[in-house]
Design a protein around this nucleic acid. Structure first.
Length: 218
DNA sequence: AAAACGGGGGC
DNA sequence: GCCCCAGTTTT
């Protein structure tokens, strides 16, 4: 492999301002409220950060906490979160959320296993909430992180879950949280699967794919 | 116009 | 495992 994984992240970290900011950062700088971070992260699935941030803001105007959210109709939630991707499904998730929190005493749980029992929360979302809301050491592996880690040869895995487990062993703990901001942002903004911005990539000369588009041409 | 795509749920 | 969910971006 080209460079070790710590150097890889350190190099990107210096250039992070060039990349789009993940929605958790957008929300987290405005609030440390786990409820809002959780809701925004649920909304962010397969949706652009800017779209997600605006939708979350519209929703929070009417539902800044779980009590107010419980008072909203599914239709009202739908209207406020539109046009995030899969907004109908997400409206149902959010409608169920206050009730789902009851088995945790009405609070947002602080473990992965508990978080993924919530509607609309999978492993990627749970890890991001752990990191952004609770400042826990958690590695968020979205499809970009999964793809890049394999391209660079740091892991040889088939699923994002396997990648997460591999990184837990391989990646020094001090870098875990950085994956969630720096790497995620890099994957979305520069090292994208379609039309990557290789020309403005700080790791261009060391990239295993040099000039080759990361995307497979079937 | 059509395919690809930043997850997750239900089966 | 496979299919569904929607709007945006890319081809």
């Amino acid at each position: 492999m080209a460079i070790n994984i710590s150097s890889f992240i350190e190099t990107l970290k210096k250039e992070v301002r060039h990349y789009t900011v993940p929605v958790v950062d957008l929300i987290a700088v405005q609030t440390k409220d786990p409820f809002k971070i959780l809701v925004a992260t649920i909304l962010s699935a397969r949706t652009k950060d800017e779209t997600t941030a605006k939708a979350a803001q519209r929703l929070f105007e009417a539902a800044p906490d779980k009590k107010h959210l419980a008072a909203l109709s599914r239709d009202e939630i739908q209207k406020r979160i539109y046009p995030v991707g899969f907004y109908k499904s997400k409206a149902v998730y959010l409608e169920k959320l206050p009730g789902s929190l009851e088995k945790f005493g009405g609070k947002i749980p602080e473990t992965i296993d508990e978080l993924i029992t919530l509607p609309g929360v999978g492993r990627k979302t749970a890890n991001l909430v752990m990191s952004a809301a609770f400042d826990k050491d958690a590695i968020c592996v979205d499809t970009h992180v999964h793809r890049m880690m394999n391209i660079w040869g740091y892991v040889k895995t088939k699923t994002p879950l396997e990648t997460e487990m591999a990184l837990r062993k391989k990646l020094p703990r001090r870098h875990w949280k950085e994956v969630n901001s720096v790497l995620v942002a890099f994957g979305q903004g520069t090292c994208r699967p379609v039309s990557p911005h290789c020309d403005q990539c700080v790791l261009q000369t060391q990239c295993p794919q040099k000039g080759v588009k990361p995307r497979k041409q079937k």
